[in-house]
Nucleic acid binder design. Sequence first.
DNA 1: AAAATTATGAGAGCTACTCTCACTTGGTAG
DNA 2: CTACCAAGTGAGAGTAGCTCTCATAATTTT
Lengths: 199, 199
Amino acid sequence: MTSSPAEPVGLRERKKAKTRAAIQRHALRLFEEQGYSATTVDQIAAAAEISPSTFFRYFPTKEATVLYDPFDPVLIEAAVAQAPELSPIGALRATMSFIREQLPAGEWERERQRQRLVFREPELRSAVMDKFAEGIDLLAGLAARRTGRAVDDFEVRNWAGAVVGVVLAAFLGAAADPEADTLVVIDRAVAHLDASLPL
Amino acid sequence: MTSSPAEPVGLRERKKAKTRAAIQRHALRLFEEQGYSATTVDQIAAAAEISPSTFFRYFPTKEATVLYDPFDPVLIEAAVAQAPELSPIGALRATMSFIREQLPAGEWERERQRQRLVFREPELRSAVMDKFAEGIDLLAGLAARRTGRAVDDFEVRNWAGAVVGVVLAAFLGAAADPEADTLVVIDRAVAHLDASLPL
DNA sequence: AAAATTATGAGAGCTACTCTCACTTGGTAG
DNA sequence: CTACCAAGTGAGAGTAGCTCTCATAATTTT
């Protein structure tokens, strides 16, 4: 029984991780160069030097190559682990500082590229929206734990919805302006919301 | 003051409207009965007694049969037309009362069915999320006009994001509970937001 | 080194969606 | 009323995403 996504040990595991990374790298590059829908799975497979059928063993769909984010679970963990005396928004903002400090510059640049791609291509944007919906549950859970309220408390859920909405608006704004620093824009947005709708 | 989409005049137009309605009706019925992905376009076409190629002349994609809402533009128009002295949230709430009063009971029941379907099927949910993103622009425009601010004003966009987020959270909650009255739930949510984050 | 496990590739098949072309039907002008 | 034009339709071919199966090759394990 293999364990959780720590670091791959056997040769097999390492090879798999490498193949997965190669597929994603080439996919993102091709999408950037020729656009998302103009790029076929066969092209990605050819670039990554695997067969098309192998592609689908690594990613369930073409769009998963863009949506897949190995840092996601790490961030959630980091958010949960923030000092318990912080308010929900405080914890959120602290997590964002954490990202900025911890993530190597190269990784962050790639992450930005991914974001631009996702918000530019309509097909991908709708897929991402789903993640924002999940975010409501996630945030409600986080806030409930910190404030001692129930997860399905009306005010908690409403608050979580407002936060996600504000972040979404900030993202959409930042995606349009390539100069904008996403994290700064989001921080400003949640700070402003927190000032009038704290929890 | 038109409460329903423009009425077709010629025989041709009427026939087209009828075909479109038939396709959508059969599609929704089949989705309800067998699930969305288990239903093929060919089945829908057969049920509506048209050829598969004709299907795509009426709807660009399979999911469009669920997403297509002829009342959408009517609602937007209604929202814009609300008394100018109302606050943005006031106008929004007034528009919802308007829906309740104007829409025949049967139509509203069908609309609820559509909503349930859309939030249950993951493929459809992500498609709908895109509409919420559009909603931010829409609301920002509405609010900007009513308050005399710019559409890309930071507070206006942030407010619009919060409203959409809160509505989204309410929708997700209402979709889970078949007893809930969607309009009431949404009204409560925006009222609560308005109390602390007015514009 | 043999055996058990697992990754891979080739290929067949399904479905959403696009495009072209010939045919029919509704609207209209003479 | 007829004759013509425009618009709606269906048949069929083709592309791409995605699934499934089966034989082969690679990696562990014994």
